[in-house]
Design a protein around this nucleic acid. Structure first.
Lengths: 189, 189
DNA sequence: CCGATTTCTTAAACTAGTTTCATTTTTTGA
DNA sequence: TCAAAAAATGAAACTAGTTTAAGAAATCGG
């Protein structure tokens, strides 16, 4: 049931079966359908999801109600509104399953207890946070250094499989431009 | 000497004097002059700096050798190239003191030992990473939701003191536009 | 398997921000 | 204190990406 998570942890550090057993009481599962909503603006995000299978996105609505996608989470990625999850403030984000998904999750209220019960889990959490930080740092780099067109081409070449899993307009939103501009680019070459 | 760091840690969790004493052997100090370079592309970033006093920036050069500032670190902020620091890969960034600064720092090679010697320091590190994550998440939000002009006005109103510490062209670079555009905006209102 | 909905494309007018180049103002360090 | 370097401004021509609007193609769920 929670094996994919344990395997993921074991990529980062030794994690005994006893650790897994001690962690298990704090793990939960959720199965969601395509397009099912996991979080709405105004709600506090009290859960941190590990995508076992499927694809989840987070987005904001701008003043014209256009979706601005900020995050995609594929298999073996953790996803949450970190701000809301950590501080307990209401979220501004929407979180939605793009595909039917299986999610393992933990609860904000139980986190300190988890760290106490399984110290290795806190180390893992630190490493995951640091890795996410690297991903964000790269992303800001990416935004700074490339034009929209370059970013699209880079992305399309680097993650061809991903392109087939999300509608193009979602990728356009994630990359920060309009679907029309994306069509224009694609028509060129 | 290292008191500002201990005080910072104590904002996040209990940290006994004994913890401080155990941590001290792994802490170092560096004083740098205005414009002094801390890291160049190609070097591995083996140090993680805590700004005790002063101001540090990180930037990339684009294909036209224009500086693209990605990070500013003021007093009580940690700064490093996380990617290089964690993975040991050569950095792509420049890191430079904007003002004469006093820095406390730790060494990548000693981190695991530090965590073993002072477990509370690992908890603190996790919290700092999570907080940095929140900052990045907000920043991507910021980029997504506002035009360059809006971002400038928001920034100028929110952090008036900061404006006086950095040249305008650096803020323009950080916000992702040209100094000329910034002059244009400022002339308007 | 079909109607409804969602997604993609095209095109023309438009605009936010860039580029280039020249000039002025401010800061700095010797 | 002053010459040199760094920073800020201005204006005109330009361009990457947006907007609006409409039709075509693909996909979905009942």
């Amino acid at each position: 049931m929670y094996t994919p998570l344990y395997e993921h942890i074991r990529k980062y550090l030794p994690f005994a079966d006893a650790d897994a057993a001690a962690l298990e009481p704090y793990l939960y599962m959720k199965e969601v359908k395509r397009k099912e909503i996991l979080l709405k603006p105004g709600q506090v995000c009290r859960e941190h999801y590990f995508v076992k299978k499927g694809l989840v996105r987070m987005y904001l609505l701008d003043e014209k109600d256009t979706e601005k996608i900020t995050t995609f989470a594929l298999e073996n990625w953790w996803v949450t509104d970190n701000d809301s999850f950590i501080t307990g403030k209401p979220s501004e984000y929407h979180m939605q399953a793009v595909e039917a998904s299986e999610l393992i999750y933990i609860k904000a209220a139980e986190r300190d207890e988890m760290f106490k019960a399984v110290p290795a889990y806190e180390s893992y959490t630190r490493m995951i946070a640091e890795r996410a930080l690297v991903a964000y740092q790269r992303r800001v780099n990416f935004i700074n250094m490339m034009s929209d067109e370059e970013r699209y081409r880079f992305f399309a070449e680097s993650f061809p499989g991903f392109l087939q899993r999300v509608p193009q307009y979602m990728l356009a939103s994630y990359l920060g431009f309009t679907p029309q501009f994306m069509s224009k680019i694609r028509a060129k070459r």
